[in-house]
Amino acid sequence: MNILIVEDDDRIADFLCRGLRAEGHHIQRAADGPGGLAMAREAARQAQADGTCTVLLLDLMLPGMGGLEICQALRAEQVDLPILMLTAQGALEDRVAGLRLGADDYLCKPFEFEELLARLEALARRGRVQRPRPASRLQVADLVLDLERMQASRAGRPLPLTARELALLELLMRAPGRLFSRERILASVWGTSEDPLTNVVDVYIRRLRARIEADGQRPLIHTVRGLGYRLEAPPAA
């Protein structure tokens, strides 16, 4: 098995590399977020070309780019490598955020090496099963999000959205009509390192509304006062 380790702590990375190599696995390691993302992309291309069984062992807190951002970026690009999040942040909201952004499993530090091996082997078996190809686009009414190009449009008109606005829009469009609390949006799009008292969610919702409801377009994002936001198609005339 080819195991990609993205871990900035040299002591932990050395322990993992030595232990996993002793088990007969091929190891690649990156020490920061951007390096880990590039390594995962290249390994995914290689795995697709030659069928190599590859698993990504991904730390949550990394310099340059966090593990949640890496996970989200890979899934947005339809990179289907099995991902095991490995982190000291074991709170429920941290685990849920990682899993919702595309991680396959979650293991908290400190951990037993035997359990790590068992989880990696389980992910490798799961990765051999042919998974259905995810949808390449989302649509609600005349709002369309192309997930391959990460480009949004309304009534055929391209919308100039930032990466964070696209991530927020994707979250809402994947579950039309579902009510998302500010806390859930914050954890899913920004990660749990963001101050829970920040108003960043409200700011980005306003910006997203201004983009998709410009030129008199009918509202799609709705506020439920005190509870959160939902995106849904307007009722049929």
Rank of each mutant, 00 (worst) to 15 (best):
C17V: 15
C17S: 13
R137L: 12
I3N: 06
I205N: 01
W190Y: 15
D32I: 03
R174D: 12
R154N: 07
L166M: 08
H25M: 07
E77Q: 05
Q130G: 13
D195N: 14
A163Y: 13
V129A: 15
M150P: 05
P63L: 06
P196L: 02
L161T: 04
G127K: 10
L81N: 03
R75I: 02
D104T: 00
A49H: 10
H26I: 10
L159W: 04
I3V: 15
R18G: 05
P132V: 08
G226A: 03
L86F: 14
I205S: 07
V129K: 15
Q72M: 08
R41K: 06
L147M: 12
R95C: 09
D8A: 07
R45D: 12
A118M: 14
A43N: 08
R29H: 14
A43Q: 04
E42H: 15
N2Q: 15
A103K: 06
H26F: 11
L20S: 07
V189T: 01
F113Y: 13
Q151W: 04
R174P: 05
G67Q: 07
A47N: 03
V79D: 11
D8F: 13
L220F: 08
Q48D: 15
A76Q: 14
A73T: 06
G51H: 09
L58V: 06
R174N: 14
R128Y: 01
Y229S: 02
P158M: 02
A210W: 01
G51M: 13
A44F: 10
E115H: 07
S193C: 08
D9G: 12
E114Y: 04
A167T: 04
V96C: 01
Q89M: 14
E183M: 10
G102T: 00
A237E: 10
A47G: 08
I212P: 00
R95W: 04
L169Y: 03
R119L: 13
Q28G: 09
A49D: 10
V129G: 11
L197R: 11
G67Y: 01
D50C: 12
V224Q: 11
L159V: 13
V140N: 00
E170L: 06
G67C: 01
G127P: 05
R230K: 13
V200D: 03
F180N: 02
M1I: 00
E115K: 06
A40T: 05
L117K: 12
Q72T: 11
E23R: 15
R128V: 03
A97M: 07
E213V: 08
E194W: 08
M65S: 04
Q46L: 15
V224K: 13
L168Y: 01
A38H: 09
S193M: 12
E232R: 06
A44Q: 02
V55T: 09
D59K: 09
M1E: 10
A124R: 13
I27T: 00
G216D: 04
T52V: 13
A103V: 02
R128E: 15
A141M: 00
G216F: 03
A187D: 11
P234G: 09
I70R: 01
E170A: 11
G19L: 04
R21N: 09
